[in-house]
């Protein structure tokens, strides 16, 4: 069976959830082969096998990831040349999109971003993308070369299909020419909560929360729901939360089962990052706030009284169960 390459997004071997979704999608097309580069990639093998990767190509050589994007692309281009896969799937993160774009140029294949579904149609690959914030579903075909697709998180339920993967050590590619080199990397502080882009529930706060201290209310609701914490740009600009919590056009794009927006007006730039959430609940004291246009359930009221009550009710339910 022909192969589908899945580029693994991981942090020291801890695989991000979109990769498991991409593996699930890849299995429907052909044989899923995972490609993991950078430190700790060997540690990802077992997890990738659980989700049906029959082979994991590993390259731990630090020289690959120290050259920004171009290093990974070099390795992928070689693999595409050797294996002529049916497609390459990359998780749809900002860096994943850059990898996909560069790779497409290198191998002269079509690139499609934010894909939510792939299938065969008359021997040809069809990819469905959610465009314009989810208001239009676009089906495209790739007319030339190996398709390079970025997979949008939370587009399908990742299902396990355990196998014992074959591990292939790939030699580091030689990278010549002028490139950007990574001198230092800093992580966002770990919160103990699920990652924003992977969480099935997100509780987000905006300017209406009022202060960094008040964000405790949002965090407590998030913890009661096992949710990630998000924010509008107004809240991150104020320094109430780190910029990594920002949801929107220039922050994270999330597509959770449930998004609870508290004290967020619903500026178009914010909606761009969350309006494909399956269910949206909004709490805002202004009945005219545009967030109510996209909400399934809206409450006009003061978040400072409603949010703690909601947290208490949910905790009480959890105890009863």
């Amino acid at each position: 069976m022909s192969q589908v390459l899945v580029v693994v997004d991981h942090l020291d071997g801890v695989v991000s959830r979109p990769v498991l979704e991409a593996l699930t999608a890849a299995r429907g097309l052909g044989e899923a082969v995972a490609v993991a580069v950078g430190s700790g990639s060997g540690a990802a093998v077992e997890r990738l096998g659980e989700y049906g990767a029959t082979e994991v190509v590993v390259c731990e050589d630090p020289s690959v990831t120290s050259v920004l994007v171009a290093g990974v692309v070099e390795l992928l281009a070689r693999l595409v040349g050797e294996r002529a896969p049916l497609a390459v799937l990359v998780p749809s993160t900002p860096e994943g999109k850059e990898i996909a774009g560069r790779l497409a140029v290198r191998i002269d294949g079509g690139v499609l971003t934010d894909v939510v579904e792939v299938r065969w149609d008359g021997g040809e690959l069809r990819a469905v993308q959610a465009a314009f914030g989810g208001s239009t579903m676009v089906t495209s075909r790739v007319r030339r070369g190996v398709p390079v697709l970025t997979w949008r998180p939370n587009s399908l339920a990742a299902t396990p299909a355990p196998v014992s993967p074959r591990v292939t050590e790939a030699p580091a590619p030689t990278i010549s020419g002028g490139h950007a080199r990574v001198r230092a990397t800093r992580m966002a502080a770990a919160s103990g909560r699920p990652a924003l882009t992977e969480a099935s529930v997100v509780v987000a706060g905006g300017r209406g929360v009022g202060s960094a201290e008040n964000f405790r209310l949002i965090e407590e609701l998030a913890d009661a729901l096992g949710a990630a914490v998000g924010a509008s740009r107004a809240a991150t600009d104020a320094g109430w939360l780190p910029h990594t919590a920002q949801v929107g056009q220039t922050g994270a794009t999330v597509s959770p089962d449930l998004y609870i927006a508290c004290g967020i007006s619903g500026a178009i730039q914010h909606l761009a990052g969350m309006q494909t959430a399956k269910t949206i609940v909004a709490i805002n004291k202004d009945p005219e706030a545009p967030i109510f246009q996209v909400a399934d359930f809206g409450v006009v009221g003061d978040l400072h009284t409603i949010v703690p009550q909601l947290t208490a009710e949910i905790r009480a339910r959890r105890v009863q169960e």
């Binding site: 497409a104 690139v111 069809r126 676009v138 309006q275 399934d296 006009v300």
Partner: peptide
């Protein structure tokens, strides 16, 4: 290298209950 073959507008099926 790519071509759109179909596009379908999907009305956001939001309940839009506001209390």
């Amino acid at each position: 290298a790519t071509e759109v073959v179909a596009a379908e507008e999907r009305s956001a099926e939001r309940a839009r209950v506001v209390i």
